[in-house]
Amino acid sequence: MQSLFLRFGASGTQRRSLPLRSLRPLHFFLALLPFLGATSGELPPSGTVPGFIALLLVNETPFPGERAWVSEEDTKAGMLAILWVLDSRIDSIPPGYTQAQIASEKCRNIIDVITAGGEKGQCDGFYRDDRGDFVAVPRVHERVDYLVQCSTRGKPGRFARLLDYAADLAAAYEKGGIGEADRFAGIRNVDGVPVTGRAYSWMTDRGSFHPGGNFVRIPDSESGSLGGNRFFTLRKLK
């Protein structure tokens, strides 16, 4: 964990390494998120790195009225946990695994992770087009546009706050990285199975959904179910 460095730049293709101590402002920022300024309910353009991350975070978590909805806090926790998974796939690969085994292919940054695997990728509907631009299928935009539309009705409420949270989280990540705070980092054993710690996959909470292979379901007792998703760590190999 101490060797964790940020590997991201504003363009999405540059790499930048920052020492861990520079991440502290991010933690402070995240803690302040609920108290910061007015809600806008807007997401940055999806062609930008924070906009694309925010689009994914909103797409993968439930809003009021959706089946997996529990609360604003739960959905926010789900967004953060998803960001942790994506970040873990960049350069926190456990001994005995290759990045390609976990993230489908070699990834240099979070956009590579999100778009990895093309049609077979973890993030269904998110890919790079023929020009190499990161894009999402129309269905993703339809849902998110609808949520944005809902957020503008009446005085800003949960919809606007959740959209803002995703946007702020994505912007903060681009600026300062995820830091060492990882909800699942300390898990070492699940039902007697030695595991690597950290989460490396998430799936919609549904029957029979399991990523298979060496992925190990993180139980509810370890907060493995957040924001309508089930999170998975890896079986320890070495």
Binding site: G121, Q122, D124, M203, H210, G212
Partner: peptide, 28 residues
């Protein structure tokens, strides 16, 4: 508000024997 939770699965493209085949993608 049906747009909120509707998913489509094309039989020719989105069906696999095991989700391990697709690295645990949610789209299958």
């Amino acid at each position: 508000h049906e747009k909120l939770e509707c998913k489509l699965y094309h039989l020719d493209k989105k069906i696999v024997v095991s989700l391990e085949d697709v690295n645990g993608s949610n789209g299958f």
